[in-house]
């Protein structure tokens, strides 16, 4: 595993290895001194698009691994002064940086950077294309829920039953890199993906992964679903104002108390964040035990630790033998 750019580039076995390593990290005493061995390795976090959550998550992940982290925001950097991304990453490489984590508003930058430098490049979100480490964190979260018996009533008892899961992704599908990465991941492991949202936010062509159903009718689809992943409406990516108004959106696609009544008692809710409370998902659901949102945040750190470990080839004694 040299780079980590798109979920679809990896086999199920490779993705499972990352997930299992993340799970090991979660159960490991991270204060153990062996992690300090990585201090001479430097990770550059280049965030050309604002993202507090992903950035902090990567920073914590790298620090937990004992890596040295340098931040690089576009506002504060020479990129603002007309330097190209190529010159920036070549300079970082020359300065001795060992890996690059890149968030960009362009779909292509992370692929381009991976060709310009021969150090690992990790995609922290590229435009609307991919957000693979978010998908890995969500994957770990779902695996955890299965192992805790949350879907026992549906006869989903272990990861072997993953393909029985029916997962609905709700909201702004067309602008969502998270939806694309999750869709590719669910296809790898056979789960059934449903895309749900107002027509203008659903794909009009093949989105590139296997879709079980695509509909603007959430209410009808809902009783089938084991997991509902609500997405953020990406107002900044809309080329024209949303036709549906917020009240209408909440009524039809919001994760609300009244909606919960027609879902199975075992159905769980997720949101990649940052969520708009009481529009995309109601506050009392976010705060209930039906919500996996905070677990997603926590697991994203372990997944990013696993991705950094695999791509950078970090050797950490004992971690694989737990």
């Amino acid at each position: 595993m040299v780079n980590f750019i798109d979920i679809e580039k990896f086999t199920a076995d490779e993705l499972l290895e990352v997930a299992e390593l993340a799970e090991n990290y979660k159960n490991f005493d991270l204060n153990s001194p062996i992690f300090l061995n990585n201090r001479d390795k430097i990770v550059a976090l280049i965030f050309l698009e604002n993202s507090t959550r992903t950035r902090i998550s990567f920073e914590i992940a790298a620090k937990k691994l004992g890596l040295t982290v340098i931040g690089f925001d576009s506002e504060k950097s020479s990129l603002e002064k007309g330097e190209t991304i190529k010159d920036t990453v070549l300079t970082l490489k020359a300065l001795g940086v060992n890996a690059i984590v890149l968030r960009a508003s362009s779909a292509s930058s992370v692929n381009q950077v991976s060709k310009w430098v021969d150090i690992p490049v990790i995609n922290a979100g590229n435009a609307m294309r991919s957000h693979p480490t978010q998908a890995m964190g969500d994957f770990v979260t779902i695996r955890e829920a299965i192992s805790q018996g949350r879907f026992k009533s549906e006869n989903i008892n272990s990861f072997d039953d993953f393909s029985k899961l029916k997962i609905g992704i709700v909201g702004d599908i067309i602008h969502s890199r998270v939806a694309r990465s999750l869709g590719e991941l669910f296809e790898r492991f056979g789960a059934k993906t449903y895309l749900i949202g107002p027509e203008e936010l659903l794909p009009k062509f093949d989105i590139g992964f296997r879709v079980e159903g695509i509909t603007d009718d959430f209410k009808t689809c809902l009783p089938e679903l084991d997991i509902i992943i609500a997405l953020r409406i990406q107002l900044e990516r809309l080329t024209e104002p949303l036709l549906v108004n917020p009240i209408f959106y909440r009524e039809r696609y919001g994760i609300t108390g009244s909606l919960l009544e027609s879902a199975k008692p075992s159905t769980l809710f997720m949101h990649p964040g940052p969520q708009v409370r009481d529009l995309e998902i109601d506050s009392d659901i976010i705060d209930s035990d039906r919500s996996l949102i905070l677990k997603q945040v926590e697991n994203s750190i372990y997944s990013r630790m696993a991705v950094l470990t695999k791509t950078m080839g970090l050797e950490i004694d004992g971690i694989n033998n737990l």
Binding site: A107, A127, M128, R129, I174, H175, R177, R180, P203, K204, F205, D206, I207, G208
Partner: peptide, 11 residues
């Protein structure tokens, strides 16, 4: 081109 590939890539 507007189609499957642009939709997959989000372009």
């Amino acid at each position: 081109n507007l189609g499957d590939v642009s939709t997959k890539l989000g372009l």
